[in-house]
């Protein structure tokens, strides 16, 4: 009989720690698959952030380093410089990467660190219970902007991170994808794989932003949340490549 599906053995045999409908599980899976496909499981150091995916280590059978909130790109720099031949995968959420850790990601990219970053943008602080994120859309509600985010009230505008990083010469590859449907999941899979292959070929910084649903903190059903990603988020955060082979697309 032909085997059509197999559990990735990087995933430990336990339930996912994430809420129903959350995008992290899918994205984790694609990161694991890419690492497995390039045969680097024993050589990978997974850099976990502070945020929901801080728990990644509970079911990833990988060496994991989990530093302070927002500082993951700096710590990843330390890891990679000390072990240049290891595969360093940086995994961060929007609060970690685009608020408290803005300086760290900008400068890690600017130095052209040879690492692969997966940036999960779900427009909310999940772990702390649904506060406004730097990527929360205008009008989107959160516990700290209960009337919906309003830039006119000094709450700022949603930050488009790929666009922000695009001009940095240290950035080799950047793409924004989404996991709201199968077609885009496959695109995400391809982008993550490419980012990892870039690192193995010592090309420099690869950055993959993934739009991802957070139904619980958005107060939506999982299906509605996927629609929100597709209709609202992707409208503000255009999908596609921003930088390929070091050139702006």
């Amino acid at each position: 009989m032909k085997k059509v599906y197999e559990r990735n053995n990087i995933a430990l045999d336990m339930p996912s720690p994430y809420c129903p409908g959350c995008g992290h599980g899918i994205i984790h899976r694609m990161v694991m698959d890419a690492i497995k496909e390039v045969g680097q499981a024993d050589n990978t150091i997974f850099m976990a952030p502070v945020g929901c995916s801080i728990l990644a280590y509970t079911y990833l059978d990988l060496d994991v380093c989990q530093p302070a909130h927002g500082r993951t790109p700096a710590a990843a720099t330390g890891v990679k410089r000390a072990l240049p031949d290891s595969l360093v995968v940086l995994y961060q959420g929007d609060g970690d990467l685009a608020a408290i850790g803005t300086a760290e990601i900008v400068h890690a990219v600017n130095r052209g660190e040879n690492i692969t970053a997966v940036f999960v943008n779900n427009a909310i602080y999940g772990m702390t219970g649904g506060q406004m994120a730097p990527t929360t859309l205008e009008g989107q509600r959160a516990t700290t902007c209960p009337e919906g985010r309003n830039p006119m009230l000094g709450q700022g505008y949603p930050i488009r991170v790929c666009e922000l990083l695009q001009s940095l010469r240290g950035l080799y590859y950047a793409e924004r994808t989404s996991v709201h449907d199968a077609k885009n999941v496959l695109k995400t899979r391809k982008a993550i794989k490419k980012g990892i292959e870039n690192q193995m070929a010592k090309k420099g910084f690869s950055f993959i932003e993934v739009l991802s649903p957070c139904p619980v903190n958005w107060g939506m059903t999982p299906r509605k949340a996927l629609e929100y990603v597709e209709k609202e988020m992707a409208a503000y955060y255009p999908l596609g490549e921003f930088k390929v082979d070091g050139k702006i697309v």
Binding site: R71, A74, T77, G78, V79, A103, H107
Partner: peptide
């Protein structure tokens, strides 16, 4: 580094590798 904060966290990362 870009800041003292980044520097100490780079130390954290490098030290992780021994």
């Amino acid at each position: 580094a870009e800041s003292e904060i980044a520097a100490i966290n780079m130390v954290y990362g490098a030290s992780c590798t021994g």
